[in-house]
């Protein structure tokens, strides 16, 4: 059974139809990269996977929970889905440690000491153990994004969603963040990664989805999509970005 099952997903903002019927299945442990031109609906698609956006039509089933069913406890489902944003969205009024501990403590998944240990462990993992007591404002962009990843991992999710996690970073910091994502992939985390880093997508993904105008134009293994794109739109896009 697939970890994420999307069928006929449509999404409109008012009269503007942004997603025009998407069908996607992501298997457990699979890493799917989503690429495509700006405004094609990549972020919107990703945000439908944890229902940060209301779903206009179709079905989204995550971990067996149908997100379009109003009876489903979204907060419960979201605890299993970590999300990393382009602009980090760290909580500026909390220390790095508090950012990571917030969800496990508030949702009573862990006691405070347990949550603290877990947070320190995660910080170690993203290479920021020394920044535990810093405020987000004192960190560089790359450090912020690594903290954001640690925060998303604090609830021990089995799915991670990344929305252009490196787009807001200075080039020299991109590598450190990609390395963390690479490690997660190696550990077998199920991930949907929206990215503009084509080299990274090629290297890390099991499957690449190319979106344009709210539709999936082409999908397949990174070798086929990057090496031998079949659709003219894919070729056009790759020619521009590569």
């Amino acid at each position: 059974m697939s970890k994420i099952h999307v069928a006929g997903l449509t999404k409109s903002f008012g009269s503007n139809e942004v997603l025009k019927g998407l069908d996607v299945d992501v298997a457990e442990g699979e890493v799917v990269c989503v690429i495509g031109p700006s405004g094609s609906g990549k972020s919107t698609f990703l945000r439908c996977l944890n229902k940060l956006e209301d779903i206009t039509g179709g079905k989204v089933v995550v971990d067996g929970f149908d997100l379009t069913d109003p009876k489903v406890d979204l907060d419960k489902v979201r605890q299993h889905i970590g999300m990393v944003f382009q602009h980090f969205n760290l909580f500026p009024h909390m220390s790095v440690l508090e950012n990571i501990m917030l969800a496990p403590v508030e949702l009573k998944k862990l006691s405070r000491p347990q949550a603290r240990n877990k947070a320190l462990e995660l910080l170690e993992r993203v290479g920021l153990a020394s920044k535990a007591d810093a405020r987000p404002a004192q960190l560089s962009g790359g450090q912020k994004q690594r903290v954001a990843i640690a925060r998303a991992l604090a609830m021990s999710p089995d799915i991670m969603l990344f929305d252009e996690a490196t787009s807001a970073l200075d080039p020299e910091m991109v590598g450190e963040v990609l390395q963390v994502i690479r490690d997660l992939a190696a550990e077998g985390m199920t991930m949907v990664v929206v990215t503009h880093e084509m080299g990274f997508a090629r290297e890390v993904s099991d499957r690449v989805i190319f979106m344009a105008d709210g539709l999936i134009v082409e999908e397949g293994s990174p070798e086929s999509v990057f090496g031998a794109p079949r659709q003219p739109r894919t070729r056009d896009f790759l020619a521009k970005v590569l």
Binding site: L52, D75, M83, N89, A154
Partner: peptide, 11 residues
Amino acid sequence: GQMEASRSLGL
């Protein structure tokens, strides 16, 4: 984005 980040954590 603050609200979204918090909701995405399950709060």
